[in-house]
Measured scan of single mutants.
Amino acid sequence: TRVETATETAWISLVTALHLVLGLSAVLGLLLLRWQFPAHYRRLRHALW
């Protein structure tokens, strides 16, 4: 049971790290898009909202 718990903890930390990385890359990508294509971003936002 001790090994299982350790594996579970490792998986949880791995998944958390993955989610953090994905979230950060998504935010960075959005910022980059907004910085590179302001007109396109505004049009996209206008279409979405």
Rank of each mutant, 00 (worst) to 15 (best):
T1D: 04
T1N: 04
T1F: 11
T1C: 14
T1K: 11
R2H: 10
R2Y: 11
V3G: 00
V3Y: 04
V3Q: 01
V3I: 12
V3W: 00
E4T: 07
E4S: 08
E4W: 07
T5V: 04
T5L: 06
T5H: 00
T5G: 00
A6M: 10
A6E: 09
A6W: 04
A6Q: 12
A6V: 05
A6H: 05
A6Y: 07
T7F: 06
T7H: 15
T7D: 13
T7I: 08
E8W: 05
T9C: 05
T9A: 09
T9F: 11
A10E: 10
A10Q: 15
A10T: 13
A10P: 15
A10C: 05
A10D: 15
W11F: 10
W11M: 05
I12V: 13
I12W: 07
I12Q: 14
I12N: 04
S13H: 12
S13G: 06
S13Q: 14
L14R: 09
L14D: 07
L14V: 09
V15T: 12
V15P: 05
T16L: 11
T16D: 00
T16F: 15
A17P: 03
A17G: 12
A17T: 10
A17L: 14
A17D: 02
A17Y: 04
L18M: 13
L18F: 12
L18S: 05
H19L: 15
H19T: 14
H19G: 14
H19D: 03
H19Q: 14
L20S: 08
L20R: 00
L20Y: 05
V21C: 08
V21N: 01
V21I: 13
V21M: 15
L22N: 02
L22I: 11
G23E: 02
G23C: 15
G23L: 15
L24R: 01
L24P: 03
L24T: 03
L24V: 15
L24G: 10
L24F: 14
S25V: 10
S25K: 02
S25Q: 04
A26D: 00
V27Q: 02
V27C: 12
L28M: 09
L28Q: 00
L28P: 03
L28E: 00
L28C: 14
L28G: 08
G29N: 00
G29H: 00
G29A: 13
G29Q: 00
G29T: 13
L30N: 00
L30E: 00
L31G: 03
L31R: 02
L31Y: 11
L31N: 02
L31C: 14
L32P: 03
L32Q: 01
L32N: 00
L33K: 01
L33S: 01
L33D: 01
L33C: 15
L33W: 10
L33R: 01
L33M: 06
R34K: 12
R34Y: 04
R34G: 09
R34D: 00
R34P: 03
W35H: 14
W35V: 11
W35P: 11
W35F: 13
W35I: 12
Q36S: 09
Q36N: 08
Q36L: 09
Q36T: 09
F37M: 09
F37T: 03
F37I: 07
F37A: 10
F37K: 05
P38K: 15
P38I: 07
P38N: 07
A39M: 14
A39K: 14
A39R: 14
A39I: 07
A39D: 08
H40M: 11
H40F: 13
H40N: 07
H40C: 12
Y41Q: 03
Y41I: 09
Y41E: 04
R42F: 04
R42V: 05
R42N: 11
R43N: 07
R43W: 13
R43G: 07
R43M: 07
R43A: 12
L44F: 14
L44A: 07
R45F: 04
R45S: 05
H46I: 04
H46T: 10
H46Y: 14
A47N: 05
A47C: 05
A47F: 07
A47Y: 06
A47T: 06
A47K: 09
L48S: 02
L48Y: 03
L48H: 00
W49Q: 00
W49L: 02
W49N: 04
W49Y: 04
